[in-house]
Amino acid sequence: MATSYLEHNAALMAHLRDILVAVGENQQVEEESHALFLERFDEVLHDLRQEEQEHYLGQEVICQVFQRYPQIAHLVPRDLLWFFGGDCLHFMPDEEIAIFQAVDERRFEAQEAGQDFDWVRELQLMALPENSPRH
Rank of each mutant, 00 (worst) to 15 (best):
A110R: 05
W119A: 00
V65S: 06
A98Y: 08
M1S: 12
E7Q: 12
A10H: 07
Q115I: 00
Y69R: 03
E54L: 14
E112M: 10
V76F: 07
V65P: 02
E30N: 01
A127Q: 14
L80C: 05
L20E: 00
D104A: 04
L16R: 05
V23T: 00
A2N: 07
D104E: 13
L6I: 08
G24P: 09
H34K: 08
G86S: 11
A22T: 12
V65G: 02
L6T: 09
V23M: 02
I19N: 05
R121L: 10
I99N: 13
H15Y: 15
F84G: 00
D116C: 05
A22N: 13
V76R: 10
I19K: 15
P93R: 10
A10I: 12
E39Y: 09
P133D: 04
R78E: 06
E32S: 08
G86M: 09
C88V: 06
E130L: 15
L89N: 07
Q64K: 09
R49I: 01
L12F: 13
A10Q: 08
L57R: 15
R107C: 02
L123P: 03
N26L: 07
S132M: 14
D47A: 14
A22P: 11
H55F: 15
A22F: 14
F100L: 12
E112V: 06
A11Y: 09
F100S: 10
R40Q: 11
G86W: 08
D87S: 11
V65W: 04
L16C: 09
L36W: 14
C88N: 07
Y69G: 01
Q28K: 15
Y56T: 00
V61E: 00
R121V: 04
D116E: 10
A10V: 15
G58S: 12
A22G: 13
S132C: 15
D116M: 07
D47P: 09
L123M: 13
H74Y: 05
C88H: 12
H90D: 11
Q28M: 09
Q64A: 04
E32N: 06
E30R: 07
P77A: 07
E60L: 07
I19W: 08
L12N: 14
L36P: 06
A2R: 13
W119Q: 01
H74A: 14
E52L: 10
F91K: 09
F84E: 01
C63L: 03
L16T: 08
Q27V: 00
L16P: 11
A22E: 07
D47Y: 01
M126W: 04
G86L: 04
R106S: 05
P129Q: 11
F100V: 05
P133A: 10
H8Y: 11
L48C: 07
E7S: 03
D116F: 01
Q64P: 05
